[in-house]
């Protein structure tokens, strides 16, 4: 039948097996003879991190969907988006954007073999993360005193759960970066190990990217829809 000899067709394209030492070591390029090379040539941990990030898309996607699905279901006399302080939040948003910049600078520094750059920028990134968290704490407490809290209405519930989840991600990121920073102070990180920094960077940038979406969808859009526009 049509594909009766598929083995043949396919087998021929691949390195012949079984003669001499044509095993894993000539798969891939210049393997340093040590660790397991991977089928795709991509690092396992990096694939893990991207897969995790892909999965996180659905996590934040559901939170944002919830927010948008219940948005507009108001309980009378409860606070709403008019409480948002857009200029304040946009500063927060830029703090996080700038921390992304410092994160790539840290990685670039490491890859260029510059430990000092690495340490400075790692610290700056973690510090900016802390500034963001402080800002979020201030924002939350302000809202709390203005009677806008997660048990008040749908907007409150979904707003605090979504931004709280994001804040928890930032917190994990800050702990991670501080650990890396301490590690780099104590032992230094060899440029070959730049993956350590790259992986944490991927996580950190993803958290930043989520904030970009939150800033637009959670803050700007509902705020723009209150009667009378911006003010």
């Amino acid at each position: 039948m049509a594909r009766a000899i598929a083995h043949d067709e396919q087998g021929r394209l691949l390195p012949q097996a079984g003669h001499g030492d044509s095993d894993i070591h000539d798969h891939g390029h210049d393997d340093h003879g040590g660790e397991h090379p991977t089928s795709t040539g991509l690092n396992n941990v990096k694939v893990l991190m991207w897969t995790f990030i892909a999965s996180e898309c659905l996590l934040f996607g559901s939170l944002i969907s919830t927010y948008l699905a219940v948005e507009g279901r108001t309980i009378p006399n409860t606070p709403g988006p008019e409480l948002f302080d857009i200029p304040y939040t946009s500063v927060s948003a830029f703090v996080l954007l700038f921390s992304s910049l410092s994160m790539v600078l840290a990685l670039a520094g490491l890859q260029a073999g510059d430990q000092r750059q690495l340490r400075i920028w790692l610290f700056v990134t973690a510090a900016l993360g802390l500034v963001f968290l402080g800002g979020q704490y201030y924002e939350f407490s302000t809202f709390y005193f203005e009677e806008f809290w997660l048990d008040k209405n749908f907007l409150g519930s979904s707003f605090f759960l979504l931004t709280g989840f994001h804040g928890a991600h930032v917190t994990v990121g800050v702990i991670w970066l501080l650990a890396l920073w301490l590690y780099s102070l104590r032992y230094g990180i060899a440029p070959e190990k730049s993956l350590l920094v790259e992986i944490s960077g991927l996580y950190w940038h993803f958290v930043d990217v989520v904030w970009i979406v939150i800033f637009a969808v959670v803050y700007l859009i509902p705020y723009s829809r209150i009667e009378g526009g911006g003010h």
């Binding site: 919830t66 749908f154 519930s157 759960l161």
Partner: peptide
């Protein structure tokens, strides 16, 4: 990887409804 995060969020919202007074599924509050 694509389906479980959604469930995690749904369960978290329910957990918050039951323990912290959020209103995601609280039909008595609309």
């Amino acid at each position: 990887l694509l389906a479980f995060p959604v469930f995690t969020i749904a369960l978290t919202e329910l957990l918050f409804d039951r323990h912290f007074g959020t209103t995601f599924f609280d039909s008595t509050r609309g």
